[in-house]
């Protein structure tokens, strides 16, 4: 099986964020890490390869710093990497990112493309699905399990409230992977050392520029939510307080 894993570098989850001057995104001075669902997508790809042989290729777009996620992936066992390297990729919306990816892999023949379910920063959950549309492939989201079958693959999707759905689908296909589908492996010293000699293809903006157009989505303004806290003390006998509390929860907050 030949699998492409789309990965993204995102600000660390608990990093203190500061807005940029324009108030449209955060300042660059922050620690970055691999988008968590993407790490699970990579792990799943590596496990599929170990089961069925094949190749795992990782791809990301972003400035030089984002190469780190590819290096980590190569250290864990991916075979080669594709880096769409330019600061301008950071500002692309999901539609254009998917178009840039599609253009960058047009000469490749993948059986499967994995993405994380969504990114920890924008949280669009769109890039994988749009990529499938652009390629004309089947897709399924929130994947918890993947089995190879005679005709293609059988996947387990997570639905709401503890329900799951099993779907048989053909390949090639795009799957967006849910966090927790597997247990992440650690990179080893030998893996990190060997990763240095694995191929890393750099794709410049100019190579894919003709495929992308103006962004369809843009962030007008970002702001830190104002925290407000109001305390009301309910008075009366325990019975009266309970009544008042239920009334507030039901009619004011509509929580019950």
């Amino acid at each position: 099986m030949k699998i492409l894993v789309c990965m993204k570098q995102v600000p660390q989850k608990d990093a203190p964020l500061k807005l940029n001057e324009a108030g449209t995104w955060i300042r660059e001075e922050v620690s970055y890490e691999v988008n968590e669902p993407d790490a699970y997508a990579l792990e799943e790809a590596l496990r599929q390869k170990e089961k069925h042989t094949g190749e795992v290729v990782v791809i990301t777009s972003g400035p030089a710093r984002s190469q780190q996620v590819l290096r980590e992936a190569l250290a864990k066992g991916a075979d080669r990497a594709i880096h769409l390297e330019d600061d301008a990729f950071v500002g692309l919306d999901a539609f254009n990112t998917a178009k840039a990816f599609a253009a960058a892999i047009k000469d490749e023949q993948f059986d499967l493309i994995f993405t994380g379910l969504q990114s920890d920063d924008y949280g669009f959950a769109q890039t994988g699905v749009i990529l499938a549309e652009l390629l004309g492939w089947a897709h399924a989201t929130i994947i918890m399990q993947i089995e190879k079958t005679e005709a293609g693959i059988r996947v387990k999707r997570e639905l709401e409230a503890g329900y799951f759905q099993y779907v048989d689908m053909p390949t090639p296909a795009v799957l967006t992977i849910q966090s927790g589908i597997n247990k992440l492996r650690y990179a080893t010293l030998i893996g990190i050392k060997n990763a240095k000699n694995k191929p890393m293809r750099k794709v410049a903006m100019a190579e894919v520029a003709s495929a992308i157009g103006p962004n369809l989505q843009k962030i007008e303004r970002l702001y830190v939510p104002q925290k407000s806290k109001q305390t009301q003390l309910l008075e009366g006998s325990p019975g009266e307080i309970a009544k008042k509390l239920v009334d507030k929860l039901r009619n004011e907050l509509r929580a019950i």
Binding site: K183, L184, R185, Y186, L189, I190
Partner: peptide
């Protein structure tokens, strides 16, 4: 050891 245990290396 957990499922993803990786022993330390002797360098």
């Amino acid at each position: 050891p957990k499922g993803n245990f990786e022993p330390g290396y002797d360098l």
